[in-house]
Amino acid sequence: MKMAFTIAAREFKSLFLSPLAWTLLAILQAILAFLFLTQVEAFNMLQPKLAGLDNAPGLTDIVVTPLFGNAGIIFLLVTPLLTMRLITEERRNKTMALLLSAPVSNAEIVLGKYFGVVGLLWVMVVLTALMPLSLLVGGDLDLGKLAANLFALALLAAAFAATGLYTSCIASHPTIAAMTAFGLLLLLWILDWTAGMGEQRAYVFEYLSILRHFQNLQSGLVSTADAAYFLLFTAVFLVLSIRRLDYDRLQK
């Protein structure tokens, strides 16, 4: 497993060698800052009305939860761009042979690539948390809820990255990998919409929807079922990726 960390460290550093990681970080911060300020402004407007309510939503509910919800959507757009090159690029540049002829198993290659990208995504998650934390200067936050949101977003990023890695394993071109990952994730994200159709509800779709599990966690209700959903989701795509590399060696 040591090799997986070697590959992950290299991948993580390489991401910062290209302008891609920096650009994504900058754009993410700019958009989130805008959303954050809008939410804070909304809270200021609502505050007098909220004061009169019993059991009114607090600062955390009005600012943090929507902010992390939006960060989730941005991750949906950004992750495929980060993961699309993981394996496709190695194949296209013929550098895959280096990894394949080194004493490294396919599982280690996949995990290494995966953790390299997840590392960057988790940096983004932490950066997202910094803005709400700044509210501590002038107000009170429900830190438990903030932690639940952080946890939810970290799991979401992990699941997205695994999907992206798998599409990068099967596609021959980075753009195709990105499109496939994006399409797949968006579909899983919106599956939940059938929930509104009264009698015709499809419980399977509801269960499969990423959004449903993400929102459950976000609400501060950290249940094993939702966490397990994300972990299983991640594991399935990682195993599929390893299988795909094995298959490459056999078929080609």
Partner: peptide, 14 residues
């Protein structure tokens, strides 16, 4: 094993 494929496997940005 040490292997040099027909296209050298090099990471251009290192």
């Amino acid at each position: 094993l040490g292997y040099l494929p027909d296209t050298p496997p090099l990471y251009r940005d290192l």
